[in-house]
Amino acid sequence: MAGRTYAYYPGCALHGTAREYDVSARLVCQTLNVKLQEIKDWSCCGASSAASLSPLLGIALPAHNLKLAAAMELPITTPCAMCSYRLKTAAHELKDEATARQVSEVLGSAVGPEVTVEPLLQVLSEDLSFPIRKPLTGLKVACYYGCLLVRPKSVLQFDDEENPQTMDRLITALGAEAIDWGLKTECCGAGLPLARPDLVHRLAYRIISLAQRLGADCIATACPMCQSNLDIHQKEIEAEHGEKLGLPIFYFTQLLGLALGFTPRELYLHKHLTNPLPLLRAKGLG
């Protein structure tokens, strides 16, 4: 990990709703000597909408970015679970000759399946001996992976499909306590908050309230959709259920950054809609 250089694919959300994920990812990578070279003029991976309506488009859009990274001769890393899922799936599907032929016809040149894609969580958890300046002692964290980092294992080859441990180990290495719970990889409603907020609110409520009932002070995520579904919509969910939740939802890179000595402001913690600062102050971390 340390000293390695990656072709960095931030993904669209990291330029908008998830800017704090981009900022904190870059800060911790710099500290840990993981070099990120942003892929020039990267385009959207198509997310679930492209693949939903046309399987071929769902491969061709990420394949275009695989091609850009191949020219850089670097492995790709991306903080976004959806992007890493789409890029890895495309690379996997390109192993099929007929698919590869169609995609190269669409893109105008051949793309090999050999570009490797590693989600940032995987890159940053390869070596857990972090230079910690402020251990997160006393902080109870529910690690929430969402679906797309781990499923399906046949394609993604990363951790367990229903009870992953990678983030738990990373959070524990920071001095915090990772609670054991059953909704680590339960879907939060993914990209549907605009189309079906009712569905997303119900799924997010289950996840937030279980973590809270099991004693978690906060949830750590590794996906911009998970984070925004649990954070941005929390006030509306509270109103619907007549219940105060107020559970801070972090990106794992922000917790890592705190332990590495960055301030909450440097890590853009003030960007969350559910204010995490009172919790951090109470734990002596703010």
């Binding site: 693949a51 679906c147 499923r151 399906p152």
Partner: peptide, 11 residues
């Protein structure tokens, strides 16, 4: 349409 592609069924 409501399928979220979370893949729990598939795995």
């Amino acid at each position: 349409w409501l399928c979220l592609s979370c893949q729990i069924c598939s795995v």
